[in-house]
Simulated assay, not measured.
Amino acid sequence: MCPVVSLADKAYFSIKNKILRGELQPGFPLREEHLSEMFSISRTPLRKALTQLLAEGFLIKGRDRTLRVPYITVSELQDTMKARKLLETAAAAEACKNCSNDDISRLEHIIDDEREAWLVHDNFVILTMDSLFHNFIAQTSKNKIYAEFVEILGYKAALYLALSNTLTDEINYALEEHKAILNAFKLGLPDKAADAMSSHIENVEKRIFDVIKKEKGRNLNFNF
């Protein structure tokens, strides 16, 4: 039996999808009356969806109280990646100690699904699978604080990847890095898992900055 999807959920995923696909650019105002008409839903479920997107950082509220897609500052990107590296390196080591064969199989399926999404250029699914990979590792660490904050930082990372257009050939590198983390899990080597995760996050940051440097002067999604 298929789960029931609420109107609020439909609006949430639809708006988030448009942001991650680049259809709603930074600075773009989201007005309730227009969105209500666009999705043919009342204000109550729409506001619930917008509140969730606001909490996750996919939207910000300006001084005029209008919701907009945020611009990303380079310093914010650096701070986020630094925090991710500290948290996820530790989480990967702990998860490697705790993981079962079923957990390893689950990670393999996530990587396969991410590759399939990359091959068909489905950015929304790519980012969903990427977040799922990192979140699942944090959950497997059995540390609830790791899991909570990795999920929060994952929202920001997904937005950075989408706004920097780092979802084309670069994803193939990310997939190989995910495989390296998985291989450390299979070998039962926590230190190697931590090193592989640390290297992966450093490389993600570098790839985003490489794109920003190339696009500087044309890239309107980042504030320098």
Rank of each mutant, 00 (worst) to 15 (best):
F13T: 12
S199Y: 15
R68P: 04
L161C: 00
V211A: 12
L220Q: 15
N165A: 13
N123L: 10
F136W: 05
K82I: 07
E148Q: 09
V69N: 01
T80K: 09
N135L: 11
D122M: 01
T89L: 00
A83K: 15
V69A: 03
N172V: 14
C99V: 08
A83R: 13
Y173Q: 04
N135Q: 13
L182Y: 11
L77T: 06
K18F: 02
E148H: 15
F58Y: 14
I137E: 01
I181S: 09
G22Q: 07
F185S: 01
C99L: 05
M197L: 12
N219P: 01
D64A: 07
L119Q: 12
I110S: 02
D64H: 08
G27Q: 11
K18S: 09
S105F: 09
D191T: 12
A91R: 00
Y146Q: 03
S164R: 01
R31S: 08
Q52L: 03
E148K: 10
Y160M: 12
L127V: 06
D103A: 14
L119A: 12
T89P: 02
L189N: 08
L161S: 02
D195N: 13
D79I: 14
E33I: 12
N135D: 10
S141P: 11
A158I: 01
Q139Y: 04
E215L: 07
L163D: 07
I171Q: 10
F13K: 08
K206N: 09
K61F: 06
V125D: 06
I208T: 06
I171G: 04
R106W: 12
T166N: 06
L189D: 07
I126N: 09
F28W: 08
E108A: 13
I181Y: 02
H178E: 01
Y155F: 15
D210P: 09
E32I: 13
V120W: 13
L35T: 03
Y12T: 04
H109Q: 10
N135K: 12
Q139K: 08
E33P: 09
E170M: 05
E151K: 10
A196Y: 02
L187F: 12
L159I: 03
E205L: 09
V125P: 01
